[in-house]
Design a protein around this nucleic acid. Structure first.
Length: 271
DNA sequence: AATCGCGCCTGACGGC
DNA sequence: TGCCGTCAGGCGCGAT
């Protein structure tokens, strides 16, 4: 599923195709995403030029002249540029027809994603304004994380996956970052020292940056990209490896549920 | 205020 | 071979 690095890669890949390009029409084949796609989206967007494309957490923000599209890829969504004559395939739910015979195409098998419209600054939108700090910002550091952990007894993994605290950390990167930081995922959040928080923050930043670089390697043929998310090219030490040997110590990778989510960890490496 | 659990949805996969 | 149950997962929301 797309996590922050994949969304960043999508934005960077789309930007040169979209900037200063006008939308001609919007075709909605399946409006039933997480929330209904606005039925009048085509009326709202037709003739408008795309002014900017940005990311906030895992949300893609496409700035138009009179407002902005707020797009989330959910777990299985993708945004791609295809030829204007390209026939829609299964799960191609929305097409934004653009100038120069191009289509911005939204595909989402599981339909956990969303496509919303706002007339206002998207950063003020209810879905966006409550999102926590960007993990790659300098303000995200050990002191910040420890301050936000005070009084919280939830597992530290739950804390870093809380989008109100830090944006865009999903299960895969949370799991991998905790392994890299050598921190047991079920530690009470408030029990972490500033130093431990800093180690964890550094691990999160390093993993995200690596993943963005890996995603960037496919940017040049983005238009023909098969949409494989960037973390496929990243080494996963624990995620999805329950029952296998730890790659660092030969201990056995454990698996345990935290809420509804599976957490993998090495009991030897992560104290 | 913090936390928990639900629901949205499809596809992959294992068991019979 | 087909059918069915289970799991995966982001994230808002209502309940505790």
């Amino acid at each position: 599923m797309p996590e922050l690095p994949e969304v960043e890669t999508v934005c960077r890949g789309l930007e040169p195709h979209l900037l200063e390009t006008a939308i001609q029409t919007v075709i909605i084949r399946q409006p039933a995403l997480r929330w209904p796609v606005p039925a009048n989206l085509s009326d709202l967007l037709t003739g408008q030029s795309i002014k900017a494309i940005n990311r906030r957490g895992k949300y893609v923000l496409i700035q138009l002249q009179t407002g902005a599209l707020i797009i989330h890829l959910g777990m299985s969504g993708s945004l791609r540029i295809v030829d204007g004559q390209s026939a829609p395939a299964r799960h191609d739910h929305v097409d934004f027809h653009l100038e120069q015979n191009k289509i911005l195409r939204y595909n989402d098998p599981r339909r956990f994603g969303s496509i919303l419209w706002t007339h206002e600054n998207p950063l003020y939108h209810p879905l966006i304004k409550t999102i926590g700090i960007e993990p790659l910002n300098a303000e995200f550091n050990g002191a910040y994380l420890q301050a936000r952990a005070q009084g919280r007894k939830v597992p530290v993994k739950t804390l870093i996956m809380n989008g109100q605290i830090v944006a865009g950390i999903g299960n895969i990167y949370a799991t991998e970052a905790l392994f890299q930081a050598r921190i047991y995922p079920f530690r009470e959040a408030q029990s972490l020292s500033v130093g431990e928080c800093q180690v964890l923050v550094d691990a999160i930043k390093a993993i995200l940056e690596q993943a963005i670089v890996a995603g960037g390697t496919t940017l040049k043929d983005f238009v023909n990209s098969d949409g494989k998310p960037g973390y496929f090219s990243q080494k996963l030490y624990v995620y999805g490896r329950a029952g296998l040997a730890c790659l660092l110590c030969d201990g056995l990778i454990q698996s345990k549920k935290s809420g509804q989510r599976t957490t993998a960890f090495c009991l030897v490496c992560q104290q």
